[in-house]
Simulated scan of single mutants.
Amino acid sequence: MDSLNHGSFVWLEAVCGERNIARRYTIALSRDLFGASIVEFAWGRIGSRGQGRAVSFASEDEASRFARQLLRRRASAPKRIGVPYREVVA
């Protein structure tokens, strides 16, 4: 996903039955009631509750930069876990 802005939501999955890998990763950008930019991201095994975190930023640019960093890390998955993440389209 090239352009990340408020209201963006990305769902990624890395699945390989032979290696018993079934991971998911989500990233959502939004604003809170006070106008701060929020990046929420969650990860875990598909079918489990997993973990999540939210980070607040003063500007939309900072939030977008952080979200792009998260996506770049997921892009390196083939080297790290041997399976690429694929975007899931709802």
Results as ranks from 00 to 15, higher is better:
1 M>V: 15
1 M>D: 11
1 M>W: 11
3 S>Q: 06
6 H>F: 05
6 H>K: 14
7 G>D: 07
11 W>P: 01
11 W>V: 10
11 W>I: 12
14 A>H: 03
15 V>M: 00
15 V>E: 03
15 V>S: 04
16 C>Q: 12
16 C>H: 07
19 R>D: 14
19 R>F: 08
20 N>Y: 02
21 I>Y: 00
25 Y>R: 15
25 Y>A: 12
27 I>N: 02
29 L>I: 11
29 L>G: 09
30 S>C: 00
32 D>Y: 03
34 F>N: 09
34 F>A: 11
34 F>L: 12
36 A>W: 13
37 S>W: 04
37 S>Q: 04
38 I>D: 07
38 I>F: 08
38 I>K: 13
40 E>I: 02
40 E>L: 07
41 F>A: 04
44 G>M: 03
44 G>N: 05
44 G>I: 05
45 R>G: 12
48 S>A: 13
48 S>I: 10
50 G>V: 05
50 G>K: 09
53 R>C: 08
54 A>K: 15
55 V>E: 07
56 S>I: 10
57 F>L: 01
57 F>C: 03
58 A>V: 13
59 S>V: 05
59 S>E: 12
60 E>T: 01
62 E>F: 01
63 A>H: 02
63 A>I: 00
63 A>P: 00
63 A>E: 02
63 A>Q: 02
64 S>T: 08
64 S>W: 01
66 F>D: 05
67 A>R: 05
68 R>H: 05
68 R>A: 02
69 Q>H: 03
71 L>V: 13
72 R>V: 02
74 R>S: 08
75 A>Y: 05
75 A>D: 11
77 A>Q: 03
77 A>L: 04
78 P>G: 13
78 P>D: 14
79 K>M: 14
85 Y>M: 07
87 E>R: 14
88 V>S: 07
